[in-house]
């Protein structure tokens, strides 16, 4: 084999997504990229791209407007998923507004400590808009301090990505065999990730909306960040696997928090640290290579009944009266934006 050949195979969406990202870089003389997608199931419906979509699609030269047309993309401000106590909405943007470097939820917790009962979700523009079901035009959204993902039609998104991958030099083959220097295996339901000899395994986990998309993006980027001569990559392989393991551990923790019957009894130090510290003082410690954002962790912790016993001392730096008027004006403003969006 004179050129270096990468074969990406497995479920159609991961293959198209990983394929498109790799094709941007793995192209030209001496490089071959072959995509061998399996047929997507008949019940395939939508896919969620997390807020990182802005960077990914910009790199791929896919404008959000063209995704709106080509893949029926609509913005998503939060995703709903199951947790041990029912359903939880995980917002992509922070609750309320930080003040003097102190996260908003500490001020909210202080209001509760002084006898008020505000619902934290009332201070999340993302959750309010999401619940109200209003549609904000992309142009308005871009002006608000909101992170958003995209919900897209799965089959059409696959089509868009596959087209992009081929225009960048990848080949799509029904029966590509196994003749390759590197086989990238995207497997639904598998929980093994890593780069072992000539196999790059991407666990295609799909049980939290947006996760499948993010795992594929991270894997493709991680590989490109390390890609070298494929036959001589021992150091790179080890590093890839180490980073993939760290990512899996972060996902494992988040999933356990959401769904384990007793998340407090977890055997994983990184998760018990999050639970203990949050319960003690309302801080959510972050580990290296987090996949989920702080607002998502906060929503999940609260949904599992884990409450901070106290708030950050810095939240005491404004007087009671000022705190109350700040909270009510924030609530009012959020309400106004939400109403406007419903009329849009």
């Amino acid at each position: 084999m004179s050129s270096e050949r990468i074969l990406v195979r497995g479920s159609a969406l991961p293959v198209a997504l990983v394929g498109a990202i790799l094709a941007r870089r793995w192209s030209g003389k001496g490089k071959e990229l072959v995509l061998a997608p399996e047929r997507e199931g008949a019940n395939a419906s939508t896919v969620i791209a997390r807020p990182d979509h802005k960077n990914v699609h910009a790199e791929l030269g896919l404008a959000i407007e063209s995704l709106a047309q080509g893949a029926e993309a609509v913005p998503v401000l939060a995703v709903a998923t199951t947790c041990g106590t029912g359903q939880v909405s995980l917002p992509f943007s922070p609750y309320g507004m930080a003040r003097g470097g102190t996260d908003f939820h500490h001020f909210w917790r202080r209001a509760i400590a002084s006898g008020e009962q505000p619902d934290l979700a009332e201070f999340s523009l993302a959750l309010r808009l999401d619940r109200a079901g209003g549609r904000l035009p992309l142009s308005t959204l871009a002006q608000l301090p909101l992170e958003f993902g995209l919900r897209m039609d799965r089959l059409r998104y696959i089509e868009v990505l596959s087209k992009r991958a081929t225009s960048l030099g990848a080949f799509i083959a029904d029966d590509a065999g196994t003749d390759a220097d590197l086989i990238v295996d995207c497997r639904v339901g598998s929980n093994r990730s890593g780069w072992i000899e000539d196999r790059l395994l991407i666990a295609d986990e799909n049980d939290i909306p947006g996760l499948e998309w993010q795992i594929c993006v991270n894997a493709a980027r991680r590989f490109l960040g390390l890609a070298a001569k494929l036959s001589d990559s021992e150091t790179e392989r080890r590093e890839y696997s180490r980073l993939a393991r760290a990512e899996s551990a972060r996902i494992r923790d988040f999933r356990a928090l959401l769904r384990d019957p007793e998340p407090r009894e977890t055997e994983h130090a990184s998760l018990s640290r999050k639970i203990d510290l949050f319960e003690a003082c309302g801080r959510i410690p972050s580990e290296d290579f987090e996949v989920f954002g702080q607002p998502e962790w906060l929503a999940a912790l609260l949904a599992r009944g884990i409450w901070p016993k106290r708030y950050d001392r810095l939240a005491d730096s404004i007087p009671d009266k000022q705190l109350r008027s700040w909270l009510s004006s924030m609530q009012r403003q959020i309400g106004e934006i939400t109403d406007r969006s419903l009329r849009a």
Binding site: R273, D276, L277, E279, A280, C281, R283, R310
Partner: peptide, 19 residues
């Protein structure tokens, strides 16, 4: 400042600070 303890005994804040 970020982990400023609420009370004299603050085992979780302390553990996190040390880590």
């Amino acid at each position: 400042v970020a982990l400023f303890p609420g009370s004299i005994e603050a085992p979780f804040e302390r553990a996190e600070y040390n880590r």
